[in-house]
Every structure is written in structure tokens, then in C-alpha cells.
């Protein structure tokens, strides 16, 4: 049953992605100032949303783990961090490509870029720490605490953005009073957010299953060793 849900979700995500790519590349016109490169926003922004949402969702699961000490919550939290870290990497990479063409530079120490980079480093540290702990329960406990600290810090880092001069384009979506995007384009962006969110959910579920199998094998190995 779980497998069927996974396949169904993956199929919906794939179909939606194909539809979106057709919309983005073949249906929507070029933007009047930026030309074709503006299309990167359809990947850059949804991916950024997910990489920012992931740690907070994971933080909830970390708290659940600490209150109940059930390993499945740890698997959920860590899989979410892994996936959002990869999405953050995609966000940074696509942003750099866009910046190279529009700003003429790969990188600038704009606060928004800096805070995304900080987030990337924070959770990179989280993943490194997880990799260095062998004991499953100790790993779960320590990484849950680290995740809570990092998630709280993300808020503080993100807030400090608004207090520094910023070069990054302002909000374009209507939910943040941006209103700077044509309706058709904004719709494509939200649809692509949905597609990427589904994709992220599928990868998280696959990773959770992988980790659960991993832990099962580890337990069997220990049992065999004890015999």
C-alpha cells in the first residue's frame, strides 16, 4: 500500500513537471527586460521555498522525536533536512547562473544570498555531524537538538536580511505584496512549486524507507555478531 502511494505521488509529480516544463519553455513568452533567462525563476524560487520550509517541518519532527524517542520521527526529520539541503544547493546554483547573466557576476554578498549560503552551511554541518555518529539513538538525539538550534537560527538570520541593504530583486509574488509578475507567469510558478514539493515529498519518503532498511540491517548485523 505504502509503495503504491509512493508510485502514485511520483507519477503525479512527473506529470505535473512535464506539463510545467511545456508551459515554461514553450507557452510563456520571454520577459520584456530579461529575455529568456528569466525562466530560471520557475526553478529558483520554488526550490528556495522548499529548502526554507524543509528545516521547519524537520524541526517539528525533531521535537516529536525528543518527546517520544521514536526513531521514525528522526528518520523523517533527517530525510527532510537532506532533501532541503539538496534543494538549497540547486537554489544557489540556479541563482548564480542567473546572476552571471543579469548582474554580470556569479556571486554578490547580498544578505539574501548570504543567508541562503548560511543555511546551506548550517545544514551541511548537520549532515556532517550525523555522518560522524555511529550509534543510532545518539545520532537521533544529538541531531534533533542541533536541528532545533539551526531552525531557530534560520529565522534570526533571515530577519537580519531586512536590516541590511539588499541587491536581490524584491518580492514578486502577490502573497508578499509583490505584484510584479504577469498572472500567467505567477500561476506557472505556483504550479512548479507544487511539482517540486511533490518531488521533494517523494524523495523524503524514499529516503525514510532507505534509512529504516539501513537500521534494520544494522540491527541484524549486531544480532549476528552477538551470536
Amino acid at each position: 500500500m505504502r509503495e503504491k502511494i509512493l508510485y502514485a505521488l511520483a507519477a503525479i509529480a512527473a506529470a505535473l513537471l512535464v506539463y510545467n516544463m511545456n508551459q515554461i519553455f514553450l507557452v510563456l513568452p520571454d520577459e520584456k527586460d530579461q529575455g529568456a533567462i528569466y525562466r530560471i525563476i520557475f526553478i529558483h524560487v520554488p526550490v528556495a521555498f522548499i529548502s526554507l520550509l524543509g528545516p521547519f517541518a524537520a524541526c517539528v519532527f525533531s521535537l516529536m522525536y525528543l518527546s517520544g524517542k521514536r526513531l521514525q520521527w528522526d528518520r523523517a526529520a533527517s530525510s527532510m533536512i537532506e532533501v532541503s539541503w539538496v534543494f538549497a544547493t540547486v537554489n544557489l546554483a540556479t541563482g548564480m547562473i542567473w546572476a552571471r547573466i543579469i548582474w554580470g557576476i556569479w556571486w554578490t554578498w547580498d544578505p539574501r544570498l548570504t543567508s541562503m549560503f548560511t543555511l546551506w552551511l548550517l545544514f551541511g554541518g548537520y549532515l556532517m555531524m550525523r555522518a560522524s555518529i555511529q550509534d543510532t539513538n545518539q545520532r537521533a538525539r544529538l541531531s534533533a537538538v542541533l536541528n532545533i538550534f539551526a531552525a531557530v537560527n534560520v529565522v534570526i538570520v533571515y530577519k537580519s536580511i531586512e536590516w541590511w541593504r539588499t541587491q536581490h530583486p524584491g518580492p514578486v509574488l502577490t502573497v508578499r505584496d509583490g505584484g510584479g509578475m504577469a498572472p500567467g507567469m505567477e500561476q506557472a510558478l505556483w504550479l512548479n512549486f507544487l511539482a517540486f514539493a511533490l518531488l521533494a515529498a517523494v524523495i523524503v519518503l524514499v529516503r525514510m524507507r532507505q534509512q529504516s532498511v539501513e537500521q534494520e540491517i544494522e540491527a541484524m548485523r549486531r544480532y549476528a555478531h552477538a551470536l
Binding site: G125, M128, S132, F149
Partner: peptide, 16 residues
């Protein structure tokens, strides 16, 4: 691990 974890965490405080 300590510096890898501490410095990114410290960024808002160090910035200020």
C-alpha cells in the same frame, strides 16, 4: 566538528 557547527550558528551575533 565544533568550528564547522559553531561559526555558521554564530553568524547573526557576529554580524551584530
Amino acid at each position: 566538528m565544533l568550528p564547522v557547527l559553531v561559526y555558521p550558528m554564530m553568524i547573526p551575533a557576529l554580524m551584530a
